[in-house]
Design a protein around this nucleic acid. Structure first.
Lengths: 316, 316
DNA sequence: ACGCTAACCGTTAGCGCTAACAACTTGGCG
DNA sequence: CGCCAAGTTGTTAGCGCTAACGGTTAGCGT
């Protein structure tokens, strides 16, 4: 018991014994067993983070925000990946909860009903991130993707574009991209416009994908004067197509993406985009977990909404 | 006990009771407590993964390889990030070991001596990945970065370039980049050549960074006919500079990077690079953990070396 | 001398689960 | 009919740690 107290620096231990304990620990190469520790204390120093993908450029930055805030708190983030699959998501959530984490951060508001149920029963803070368009379970931090799409549509219309196309993921897998598209269409129809073309793709977003789909779309619809992409990675591909084909941006064609990814910096053109505040969302989510009162019987619910800020760049 | 057996599907349980148990579990919203389970069984279903960074485009793919192989085995990867800091690395390793993982995968061969000691004492399979130039603790999976640099140098020399420059990270932080540079210089000197210029940077690799450094380097050394970058992200920046300035690639300037990142696909030019086999390395590392014999008293040591394959693209 | 407090250290029980073994129940077989 | 093996369920102890509380000692005031 004294050793336990000494190593955790809790309770009263004389500095002499503390020193002795520390030296013995060092000498023996003692590594505490957190399984036992957490089990005994009925607390946890894990924070579960459930995201759809790690390779998509967008979630690593959320993770960085989370890690930055958790650093020094003694809490450790554990990541689970769902591949945009609600079945898999539920399995990952179960896995996470079986470690009795201090809290859970999970991307999106759409979950299997059974997953939602175990989340509600879990008695730990649940933070749904990225999106605020829906019914949060408890805490929620994100932007409105509907608004993001709508505002970009308004912006493009205001810039004078009339033959506007969309390139994005096959929607059922990515709810937020769907919401952006819906908002975008709504924004267009405010001005009496509609999408004049669209290309959907399955599989991951990539520059190559964006370039190929842009090529195809322009071939089929040469009159298009502006393309809105569901992701910056795709719009970069569009820009690459234009560079390779000598299409002048934005004179012949305007381009706009979403996310404000770091890869936009340093390109020959500053691509228009919407900042999704990914890092800040991660930070805030971590804060909510840290601040969550232990007395969990209260109905603490809270939604933090960030503003989807348009960066016009020089491609619109 | 019967319930435990039923839910884990081990031992003999009649299908009738199994069904009853499962229904009860569902009804009660039972989520097993893995802390207790792992503690009691003295085994673990965690695999620790220690990487320098998640935002650098390169490690997520390693993680994907690991996850793919671990999928279905019941093991879960847990990621820790070191920011290329050996102190932090040691802390992360300690954290990891305190969860008593089944095995540990860790990037690089360079560690604090005390970290190396606790790794050796840990009695679980330790897989050092990415690099094979050094003394592995136990298992090792990677490529020789020295060879990668040397072979690229030979290639560039063979292509006729004589005024070759290098752009890369400030080395003390990134041992593998350092080894590539050393190998590269060695390769050049085989042909009686030396670097005619170099630019080092701190902070993360980024397209923007690559573009700026390329601009500066060309300004200071206009005669340079070829640049080798420590990372593809940087060489993309170089290409962007050339596109923006109308520098013809590879006629006026040859470019080569390292890693064979996905962002190379779809650019106006196919950038030359070296494939670092990141996904395969992740897979193999996971395999080694899965195959590791439980009888841990044997001296199972093994190094798996991949070949750093040059992709010439059309920029050299 | 006494009580009292603070500082320190030890004892006990138990976190939720599983390995190991014990015990009971069948059915089959000689 | 007894007996054994296989199938099935129950019992016990303990994984390594910590909350809670109990004891001891020293220091202090009265």
């Amino acid at each position: 018991m004294t050793a336990s107290r000494a190593l955790r620096a809790v309770g009263d231990v004389s500095s002499a014994t503390r020193k002795k304990v520390e030296q013995a620990a060092l000498k023996l190469g003692y590594v505490p067993n957190r399984l036992a520790g957490n089990l005994a204390s009925r607390t946890s120093d894990l924070v579960g983070v459930v995201v759809p993908s790690l390779s998509s450029f967008v979630f690593p930055e959320v993770l960085n925000g989370i890690s930055a805030r958790l650093e020094g708190s003694g809490l450790q983030p554990v990541t689970g990946v769902t591949d945009y699959d609600l079945q898999k998501e539920e399995a990952v959530i179960r896995q996470m909860l079986s470690w009795r984490p201090r809290g859970l951060i999970i991307a999106g508001l759409e979950h299997a009903e059974s997953a939602r149920k175990i989340l509600r029963n879990s008695n730990i803070p649940i933070v749904e991130i990225m999106d605020v368009d829906g019914q949060p379970i408890q805490y929620c931090v994100g932007i409105s993707h509907g608004r993001a799409g709508r505002e970009m549509a308004r912006k493009l219309v205001a810039c004078g574009y009339r033959k506007i196309a969309f390139i994005g993921t096959k929607m059922p897998k990515d709810f937020r991209a769907q919401k952006r598209l819906d908002g975008f269409k709504a924004g267009l129809s405010e001005a009496g416009l509609a999408l004049c073309a669209q290309q959907l793709y399955t599989g991951g977003s990539s520059i190559e994908n964006g370039r190929n789909l842009t090529a195809r779309l322009l071939k089929e619809h040469p009159a298009v004067d502006c393309i809105y992409y569901s992701s910056d990675v795709m719009s970069v591909g569009g820009l690459m197509h234009c560079l390779a084909e000598g299409i002048s941006v934005p004179d012949d064609l305007a381009l706009a993406g979403f996310n404000n990814l770091e890869i936009l910096n340093g390109l020959p053109r500053n691509l228009a985009t919407t900042d999704a505040h990914r890092y800040a969302i991660g930070e805030k989510a971590a804060d909510l977990i840290l601040e969550h009162p232990d007395a969990s019987d209260d109905e603490s619910k809270r939604t933090v909404t960030f503003s989807p800020d348009i960066e016009t760049g020089d491609t619109i």
